[in-house]
Design a protein around this nucleic acid. Structure first.
Lengths: 144, 144
DNA sequence: GATTGGTAGTTACAAAACCAACTATTAGAG
DNA sequence: CTCTAATAGTTGGTTTTGTAACTACCAATC
């Protein structure tokens, strides 16, 4: 029994997006969770610092769309694991510059490769045109 | 400073999907949260029952990809709000058939329309071809 | 140079999610 | 029958998140 035929739950974009996001995230999480005991937010912080270099927590919040309390906790956890270090800025002591340690960088280097091949596998099922369209649409939705 | 130029975090599909999913979900949540005090899982249960008719909790778990403990709690909450009712099955008393009450159905009817127009607005920024591709890709990823 | 307002980041407490063990029930094998 | 295994759903304890209030600091105004 389906009450409506023109608009189905399976077509509701937020629903689809959530399920797709969940599926891919679960697939990838074992790489950072099982092996390095990281949470998703921690992994994202590592990825940001590894790819874009040292920055303030604030910048990570904006780029990664993570609330500052979550970043704050992720940074504390990563520091405890000795994956990153903080450096208070002399000019403005409210800021602290975050950067990966050697250990953290090694983790990033490995996960970066894993992420790249994970993504390649995931995209392998689509044509180049589909990939472009998919990513463009997602980016557009994300910037809403 | 960007260390790698061929594969950027912004291209990592799980990341993109998560941000897009988050953005749309937050946009829609006020409709069920503010007005009806529902959680996301509750809203999904209502949507499933409203669209596909009475079913067992197990079926909702499978269709909506929600863990049974979450469904169990959502059902209890919806029952307390008098949006759904349970009926134990005579044949097999482990099963209970869930269905929306009149109240629940009214909520569904309204939210269904809101969801439809929300989705239409969201998709308005894309061409018909993009929409088709986007949804097809998402559905494919979701079924992984 | 005190006061007010704003910013970066943290903490505390409450809400929600996660995971594992549990109850109640049925099905099937001996 | 009765015993074991399996299924539907629930509960309890821990982890994670969300929200709001907080600290520490800086900048601008008076």
């Amino acid at each position: 029994m389906t009450k409506f035929s023109d608009f189905d739950l399976q077509d509701f974009t937020p629903f689809l997006l959530n399920i797709a996001a969940e599926a891919t995230s679960l697939g990838f999480q074992r790489h950072y969770k099982e092996k390095y005991g990281m949470l998703r937010t921690e992994w994202r912080v590592v990825f940001h610092l590894g790819q874009y270099g040292p920055m303030h927590a604030k910048e990570i919040c904006e780029r990664a769309r993570i609330h500052k309390t979550k970043v704050s906790r992720a940074v504390a956890a990563l520091e405890a694991k000795r994956y990153l270090q903080r450096k208070e800025e002399a000019k403005d002591r409210r800021h602290e510059t975050l950067s990966l340690t050697r250990r953290g960088l090694a983790v990033f280097d490995e996960l970066y490769e894993v992420a790249r091949s994970f993504d390649a596998d995931l995209m392998a099922q689509f044509t180049p045109e589909e990939r472009v369209t998919l990513k463009r649409c997602l980016a557009q939705i994300a910037n809403l």
